[in-house]
Design a protein around this nucleic acid. Structure first.
Length: 398
DNA sequence: AAATAAGACAACCGCTCTGCT
DNA sequence: CAGCAGAGCGGTTGTCTTATT
């Protein structure tokens, strides 16, 4: 038996709401509260269906709705959260007080999405749209290319994409090795393991996404800089969901990290994604990968951006007494251009001063776009940590 | 100044999922 | 377990404003 329609459509008004209708709805809800949307319009004297009333209330009339243009900070937050949560507009809206999911969705589709596309950023993956530039096929038939090492191949591609300084050659080495492995043996268990690590996405665009990016995604640095801090490990050979994640409070020991990842003996491919240590980070930076513009997501107070100094990393004192599985990582999250050196989501009450770094102090359009391009090291946070956990921690501290 | 196109935003539609009874 | 209400989502349409011709 099918579900009964939410309303009898006959005689019910559609289209834009009039001020009178708005007032009726507001008056009724102020008197009786909302709920039972099916009977509400009749009781309120409205010729609307309950769903329409609910949407009008939640998207427009609610007293805590903030109208007006989105600020840079809000835009930053949307992009960050979207890179973590995807199209979970309500979850994103929950982190943007006064904004509704519909409003954010519309803003995303009409502004942010278009802008990212113009800049060559895939708004779904938040990564450069290498899928549109399948350069590997351009080179794959070239003797020059075939004689190159995988890292050289990727470096060449990166140069063509203007990404040269942004990607750790060692990471590229692995990625390209994986590519070649995949070419030679598409059913390679290693490739499957990698793909298992990368969250499946029902979005066909993402499903078609170039595995170059996907395989590099899991290698973003996760860092635990101090002893006795909470670490989080995930199982790389399974889908790395939050349920798979385990935490421990054991002293931070050197983790397998990048060097381990670079093992070309794929039989020994690590089963744990662990932290990205100082040495690795230094190497990362030494290879020209700026930490600026990378997001420190472990802070329970808010997102913030790495400033480039070590102080910008996690302070155990901020990690909820080590009970939370916070971790630092260099995620896909890009920084949008900031017009002023204002800490992103700076919370005046936050004790995260050491991590309240600034959004790309330069602030030119080119710089902003280059940060977007650096997003090649996308890290699908949502499948690594429990986003709700993270969000809860955030709200606990806000 | 008028017509048209483009952009932005509000609202709707159809569907799935969840929680409650 | 079935039925219902509500929430949420992606996609789409309608309306209004602004820019362009």
């Amino acid at each position: 038996m099918g579900r009964a329609p939410c309303c009898d459509k006959n005689g019910l008004k559609k289209g834009p709401w009039t001020p009178e209708e708005d007032q009726k709805l507001i008056d009724y809800i102020q008197k009786h509260g909302y709920g039972n949307w099916r009977t509400l319009p009749k009781n309120a004297g409205l010729q609307r269906c309950g769903k329409s009333c609910r949407l009008r209330w939640t998207n427009y009339l609610r007293p805590d709705i903030k109208r007006g243009r989105f600020s840079f900070e809000e835009e930053e937050t949307i992009i960050q959260l979207h890179s973590i949560l995807g199209n979970k507009w309500s979850a994103i809206a929950a982190r943007l007080p006064g904004r509704t999911d519909n409003e954010i969705k519309n803003y995303w589709n009409t502004h942010i999405r278009k802008r990212l596309l113009r800049m060559g950023i895939d708004p779904v993956t938040h990564s450069p749209r290498l899928d549109l530039l399948d350069l590997s096929s351009m080179f794959s038939n070239s003797p020059f290319y075939n004689n190159c090492s995988p890292s050289s191949q990727m470096n060449n591609m990166s140069r063509l994409l203007g990404l040269q300084p942004l990607v750790n050659p060692e990471l590229l080495k692995l990625a390209t090795s994986l590519m070649s492995t995949q070419r030679q043996n598409p059913n390679s268990s290693l490739i499957q393991d990698f793909q298992n690590c990368v969250p499946s996405n029902k979005d066909p665009i993402q499903n078609n996404f170039n595995p170059i990016v996907q395989t590099t995604q899991i290698q973003a640095p996760i860092r635990n800089p101090t002893p006795n801090c909470t670490t989080m490990t995930t199982t790389a050979t399974t889908t790395a969901t939050a349920a798979d994640a385990t935490t421990s409070t054991s002293p931070c020991v050197p983790f397998f990290g990048e060097a381990h990842l670079m093992e070309h003996n794929y039989e020994q491919y690590p089963t744990n994604i662990s932290n990205f240590g100082d040495q690795n980070l230094d190497q990362w930076q030494g290879n020209g990968l700026s930490t600026e513009g990378l997001v420190n997501i472990d802070q329970p107070t808010s997102f913030s951006y790495y400033g480039g100094s070590d102080q910008a990393f996690m302070d155990p004192s901020l990690s909820d007494n080590g009970q939370q599985g916070f971790m630092n990582y260099a995620p896909p999250i890009m920084s949008t251009r900031s017009s002023s050196p204002t800490p992103l989501n700076s919370n005046s009450n936050s004790n995260s001063t050491s991590t309240s770094t600034y959004v790309n102090n330069g602030g030119t359009e080119d710089e902003w776009e280059s940060y977007c391009a650096s997003d090649v090291i996308k890290f699908e946070m949502a499948d690594i940590i429990d986003v709700n956990h993270f969000m809860l921690a955030q709200s606990n501290c806000s």
